[in-house]
Design a protein around this nucleic acid. Sequence first.
DNA 1: TTATTATATAAGAAATTGCTTATATAATGT
DNA 2: ACATTATATAAGCAATTTCTTATATAATAA
Lengths: 100, 100
Amino acid sequence: MDLHLMERQLKALSDANRLILLSCLKLGEVCVCDFVEVLRITQPAVSQHLKKLEEAGIITSRKLGTWKHYRLVDNQTPIVQAVLEELEERVTGNCSADTI
Amino acid sequence: MDLHLMERQLKALSDANRLILLSCLKLGEVCVCDFVEVLRITQPAVSQHLKKLEEAGIITSRKLGTWKHYRLVDNQTPIVQAVLEELEERVTGNCSADTI
DNA sequence: TTATTATATAAGAAATTGCTTATATAATGT
DNA sequence: ACATTATATAAGCAATTTCTTATATAATAA
C-alpha cells in the first residue's frame, strides 16, 4: 500500500468529529443536515469534513433532490476497516437519514 | 475503544515521516541517531516525532549508555496493528541500530 | 420568475503541526 | 574536572487544520 495514500487516509481518520461521522455511517446512509445536529457544528464545517473523507476514498455520495446522502464505500483498505471495527455505533438521536 | 485514544493514535500515525520510523522499527530496535540519517531531518525533529509515537503508546524506549533505543510496544491496538501490517519494511541503508 | 431549501465554496481567524536553531541534560572518556 | 557524544527541551516561524461567517450553486415549490 502506497505510503502517501496511507498518510492521506490516516489524516482523514484522525479527527474526533470525523470518527463520529464514520460511526454514524456504519448504520447506513446519512445526509449532511443530520450530521449538523449530531456534531453541533455549522453546516459548512460538516461539508468540509465529509469532503476530506470522500477525497480519502473512505465515503461516497449520491444526490437525492436537494439532499446529498453519504455512505461508506464498499471495499475499504485494511486500515480503514480496522478503524471502522473499533468504532461503536453512536445512536445519539437521529444519526441516520431515512433512505430514499 | 475510547474515541480520544483512537484520535491520538491516528494523529500519531498520520505523518509520512512517522510511518517511515515505524517501518524501520518493524525490523527491531533503533536509536535516534540512525533515524536522523534515514529521514534526513535534524535530531530534534526526530526526537519530537518519537515523543509523539511514545505518548500515543505505540513505541517505548530504553537507555543504553548515552544512546536511547526505541522499539514497538508488544501489544498494539487493532488499529496500530493494521497500520504496521500495511507498512513495508524499509531497508533503506542502516535503518536499525546494532542491539546491545 | 421568485422564494425556499440543502449543500458547497470562499475568505479569514485561531489553534496546531513540523520544522529549524539554540540550549540543556546526562552519560562516557581523558 | 573538562571535553565529547547522544538525546531532549525551548523558542520561534511557516504551513496546515478547523472552525466561523458570507456567498454561490442547484433543486424544488409557489
